[in-house]
Design a protein around this nucleic acid. Structure first.
Lengths: 205, 205
DNA sequence: TGTACATCAGTGAACGCGCGTTCACTGATGTAC
DNA sequence: TGTACATCAGTGAACGCGCGTTCACTGATGTAC
């Protein structure tokens, strides 16, 4: 992956990786195209051979993030099978694990302010990620006593919201940093209480 | 509040309000000190009579946001009394209402990237807001059957996370925009399921 | 195998821009006498 | 009530900076013959 002479070899991906590092280190607004180019050992102008500009580069970083994210959740879901409950809980946990392991991607996806509808590819990747969670919710939904069974889309939105909120408030350097509980604990217990509310876990479990 | 001659009269607050408008319109990274000054009818240099710089101005906007936020939640809590459950639900709803009504403040507080520990005043305001929610959780906690009673701090963190996640994902122009449910519905039902999981609402309610 | 040539990834200089910040200043206001 | 003066909020010109973007170019690579 090192630069060898005039031609780089794989500049496009090297730029994405530089962007991810910078976004992670300096935040979404601290990221500059020039610095990413420099870090990849290349002139700023070279970036335009591969991307339409600064925003387009961030969008590609986000897209790759959604792909990884979807794969991770899909894997967690598959691994948790055949128990719908185990599959669902694993999927929820994958959210936090992703944010921890790929902070640059996470920021590009959720904190950079770029719209998920910016490009068809980005929209598709994000839709796929959402679909995995909804699929898991759909499965689990079958086990909910009908009188308290919410639509699967609502159900998965709740879990997504709780996961996202825990990450934003407690796992990144945000307001809730001083909480005595780890994000993992908060998410685990929060989802536990929620699932109990749906009748999916025994009251005294 | 209009400019009258050389002296402005209340420039400090006018700058905060200009900043809030700009942050709301252009996002936290689109906000510039120069533009805020211009909108207040004043030279950029004048800003330095009242603030240490760009970041300091954002921090003040965030501080005022936390004050309003805390007041709103306190009011909702008081209004919901003496029923602990009603008070708590009102407090949760106040979160979303705040994000809707004061988007500029909301962004300055949660999306601008400024640390809550930047100044003692900001930290104090944020702590007060958090305390209101925790107080409501503490009250309600008394009604939870002991075997499933979580610590109030954990309990309120869950609700805060769910509220924050709903706002970020579904109330602002973010990934979940295409959800068929309104943020209000999502939050209402989500908190409902959660409270049922704690045994605070009847299973068939 | 060797040469001519097309392709195109990356160069480097240049641009206009608006940014945040500084500085010596000016002039409106309010107070002391 | 009138004058002298201290205060200090806001001016306006200037700065250096790094940004994103453009352009004509160059030189490495790979292919056709």
């Amino acid at each position: 992956m090192r630069k060898r002479g005039y031609h780089h070899g794989n500049l496009r991906q090297a730029l994405v990786e530089a962007a991810l590092q910078l976004i992670e280190a300096r935040g979404p607004s601290g990221f500059t195209l020039s610095e990413a180019a420099k870090q990849a050992g290349v002139t700023p102008a070279a970036v335009y051979r591969h991307f339409d500009g600064r925003e387009d580069l961030i969008a590609e970083a986000a897209r790759q993030g959604y792909e990884i994210f979807a794969d991770l959740m899909q894997y967690a879901y598959d691994t948790g099978q055949p128990s719908a409950l185990a599959a669902f809980e694993a999927t929820g946990r994958a959210y936090l694990a992703f944010a921890r392991k790929y902070p640059g991607h996470y920021i590009a996806m959720f904190e950079s302010g770029i719209s998920v509808n910016r490009t068809p590819e980005l929209a598709a990747a994000s839709a796929r990620a959402r679909a995995v969670l909804e699929r898991a919710a759909e499965d689990l939904s079958q086990h909910i006593p009908p009188p308290m069974r919410p639509p699967a889309a609502m159900f998965s939105a709740h879990i997504w919201a709780m996961s996202h909120g825990v990450v934003e408030l407690f796992a990144r350097n945000s307001p809730g940093t001083r909480s005595p509980y780890s994000p993992e604990d908060l998410l685990e217990t929060g989802i536990g209480v929620y699932l109990r509310g749906l009748g999916l876990i025994e009251p005294d479990a």
